[in-house]
Simulated scan of single mutants.
Amino acid sequence: MWRGVLPAVTTKFDREDGLDHSEMERCFGLQIDAGCDGLVVCGSLGEGPMLTLEEKLAVLATARAAAAGKPVLMTVAAASTAESAAIARAAAKAGADGLMVVPSLVYHTDPAETLATLRAVAQAGDLPVMIYSNRLAYRVDVTVGIMEELAQDERFVAVKESSDDIRRTTEIINRFGDRYAVLTGVDNLAFEALAVGAVGWVAGLVCAFPAETVAIHRLMQAGRWGEALSVYRWFRPLLDLDVSSYLVQNIKLVEALAIGSNERVRLPRLPLAGERRGTVEAIVARALETRPTLPALS
Rank of each mutant, 00 (worst) to 15 (best):
K12Q: 10
E149V: 14
L253G: 06
A8K: 00
H108Q: 14
L105N: 09
S230C: 10
R139I: 02
F156E: 08
A193K: 12
D17V: 02
M130C: 13
E212Q: 15
V196K: 05
G223T: 03
N188D: 15
S245Q: 10
G197F: 10
V186G: 04
P210I: 04
F176E: 06
S245E: 12
V280K: 01
V196T: 12
Y180C: 06
I216V: 15
L30M: 13
A120L: 06
L57E: 02
R269V: 01
A112Q: 15
D187S: 11
P71D: 04
R26M: 06
E161R: 11
L6I: 15
A256F: 10
T169F: 14
P49D: 01
A116H: 12
E148N: 15
G4H: 04
I216Y: 01
A208Q: 13
V140E: 08
A122C: 04
G43V: 00
G38T: 00
S298R: 12
E161K: 11
S80A: 12
W225I: 06
E23G: 03
V76L: 09
E113A: 14
P128N: 04
E16L: 08
D141I: 04
N134S: 11
Y138N: 08
I146F: 12
T213G: 09
A190Q: 10
R135M: 13
I216C: 01
A94P: 03
V186S: 09
V231S: 09
V243E: 10
V102A: 09
A151G: 15
W234A: 07
G278V: 00
A78R: 12
V59D: 03
V199N: 04
A66L: 03
A151P: 11
Y246L: 11
S244M: 09
T169W: 09
E192S: 13
L297R: 09
G197R: 07
